[in-house]
C-alpha cells in the first residue's frame, strides 16, 4: 500500500541557506506541521524569526497542505 504524500516548496533566507538551499521541494505526509519541516532541516527553533506560509504570516504549529509555499527567516536581533 502506497503512503499518500504531499509536496511543498520551502524557501530559506539569510543564514538558513548556509549548508542547505535557497529553495527546494520537500515531500511530506499530510498533516505535517511547519515545525516538523523546521526540525527536518535541523534549524534550531530558537533561531526562527518570521514564518510565511503562502504569503501570509504563519505559526509553527500550522499544518502544510499540498502545494504550500513556506518561507523561513532567521531571528535578527542585533543593532
Amino acid at each position: 500500500m502506497q503512503t499518500e504524500t504531499v509536496q511543498i516548496t520551502v524557501k530559506l533566507f539569510a543564514s538558513f541557506r548556509a549548508g542547505r538551499f535557497v529553495e527546494a521541494k520537500q515531500t511530506c505526509v499530510p498533516g505535517t506541521r511547519i515545525a516538523d519541516i523546521i526540525s527536518r532541516l535541523e534549524i534550531a527553533p530558537k533561531d526562527i524569526g518570521m514564518i510565511m506560509l503562502d504569503n501570509r504570516h504563519a505559526e509553527p504549529e500550522q499544518p502544510l497542505h499540498a502545494g504550500a509555499r513556506l518561507s523561513l527567516f532567521p531571528l535578527l536581533g542585533g543593532g
Partner: peptide, 18 residues
C-alpha cells in the same frame, strides 16, 4: 510578524556577530 510571541530576546547575531 518579524518577532512572534515567545521568541528569544537575542537572535542569530549571537552566533554570527556583526
Amino acid at each position: 510578524r518579524l518577532y512572534p510571541a515567545g521568541v528569544a530576546s537575542k537572535g542569530t547575531e549571537q552566533q554570527l556577530g556583526n
